[in-house]
Design a protein around this nucleic acid. Sequence first.
DNA 1: CTGCATGCAAAAACTTTGCACCGCC
DNA 2: GGCGGTGCAAAGTTTTTGCATGCAG
Lengths: 126, 126
Amino acid sequence: MLKYSRQREAIKNFLLQRYDHPTAETVYTNMKEDFPNISLGTVYRNLSLLAELGEIQKLSTGFGPDRFDGNTAPHYHFICNSCGCVLDLEVGGLDHINILAGQDFDGEIEGHQVYFYGKCPNCSPS
Amino acid sequence: MLKYSRQREAIKNFLLQRYDHPTAETVYTNMKEDFPNISLGTVYRNLSLLAELGEIQKLSTGFGPDRFDGNTAPHYHFICNSCGCVLDLEVGGLDHINILAGQDFDGEIEGHQVYFYGKCPNCSPS
DNA sequence: CTGCATGCAAAAACTTTGCACCGCC
DNA sequence: GGCGGTGCAAAGTTTTTGCATGCAG
């Protein structure tokens, strides 16, 4: 049985209004404004829980700590090899890739995660 | 200047003959057979180095420690939500996704990583 | 009241790093 | 010989967990 918690609610709302895919640490720092006594453990517990429920996305970028995204609509992510920033990326024509992937596969494909790597507009030479 | 090392060579060869995407710990355990005194630090150093050189791939699956893949040919990965195993997946028709992704993007796309999630053949109900 | 959620702190899990010595070039 | 690589151990980073208390149902 899942019980309501003001902290969880606040964490989810925070993520919904951020577009930079914060880390647990960043969430924690920002939560402290409204909940001075909140603990990092609580942040981690709620982030994991929300990710399991599918209400947020967890991103493992391969650089540093995991990041979290409140946008659950299908979209992709770009990670800058120079500055490490994480950007949203809308890419058309990838909706069918679960089906493509399942064609020669005996198990069940339930979802996917795509990370693009390169140089972000700020770090790009041009 | 990069200097030859028997340990690095052995790590690379080990990864080339494994298809289960071992963790650093697993590489370490196996290296100890040939190099009883090898240290975990050396394993991590060489895995990072090889990944930077593009001779192996580092996989951040979102579950547990990073994994490593000696197969540098373009291919994708499947991660089982039940048992956590990581399988190779050949998916046709995804070669162009860097181009698709770059179309509305101001930076530079240099590469991508795709993870599929679901139930592997062993964990699948059927 | 009952039990899940929290705060706090300790610990676990994973990875990196400093330093003295070793071995490739 | 000179310098990068190694082994060892310590430390750093990120995440999880145990326990007493707090609060939603």
